[in-house]
Design a protein around this nucleic acid. Structure first.
Lengths: 134, 134
DNA sequence: CTGGATCCATGGCGATACTG
DNA sequence: CAGTATCGCCATGGATCCAG
């Protein structure tokens, strides 16, 4: 495929690092980023949270149409996010029934990370030469 | 992966555009955050990139031990990350053989997002009352 | 001994129906 | 409108096997 022969000196950019300690124990119960990874595990957690962050609050079928997600996956994803206290569910006893989902305070706190992800994605799009082969 | 282009033609609903009704079109090829989501899709992309960001460069079995990931998953994950131009693979013709993986410049660019994720995870850990029921 | 593939069991995930 | 139920496939995990 692609033979990327480059010098080893680019391995570590000076002054750029995430954590000072080289011991990476993502599975530790007190590992912050490991816990974050677990919270967003699965294909649809981040897309759902992103939609809610943009819309503020959204109904079940709204999210479904936006993402093209199946009922099963949306239901499970919302339930998981609820368990983590990231999404709140508000049911209105009306006819027809209405259920609105919104980010909790902890869910809202993910937005800075989402924005960084967006900037990163933009950078990848701006460098198509290094992108995946279409 | 393969981009499944959702055809707008629908036998039952002619003339109805599916993509047009989405205000948030994460599937659009020019959507930055959608592209970022695709780039990190899968269970192990972020953990592997995190390990590489901390270690600077790591060998195959180093990553494997750190994460407790299986051979198949690590191989596939590294290959996907290579395709996206996020990870570089450097092979040394030595005895015993040695292969080192490191983040590319585009791969390193994810670190601000990882830092935000870490802060977010720390916030979740600091608010156990809102966390998932143990 | 290291990097990686192959077989196999399981669970996440998708498509389509059906229900309150 | 907001879910549930069911089927089937593919990604994932576990163990073992292969190449250099």
């Amino acid at each position: 495929m692609n033979e990327q022969v480059e010098s080893n000196e680019t391995a570590a950019l000076p002054g750029v690092y995430v954590a000072a300690e080289a011991d990476v124990s993502l599975t530790a119960p007190t590992c912050a980023i490991g816990y974050a990874f677990k919270a967003i595990e699965g294909k649809w957690k981040l897309p759902v949270m992103y939609v809610l962050s943009v819309r503020g609050a959204a109904r079940y079928n709204e999210i479904k149409r936006e993402l093209g997600i199946t009922n099963m996956m949306l239901t499970n994803t919302l339930r998981d996010l609820e368990e983590y206290g990231l999404v709140s569910r508000t049911q209105y006893n009306e006819v027809p029934p209405r259920v609105e989902y919104a980010l909790t305070d902890n869910g809202y706190a993910i937005i800075p990370a989402l924005k960084e992800f967006e900037k990163w994605g933009q950078r990848l799009l701006d460098a198509p030469a290094d992108g995946p082969v279409e």
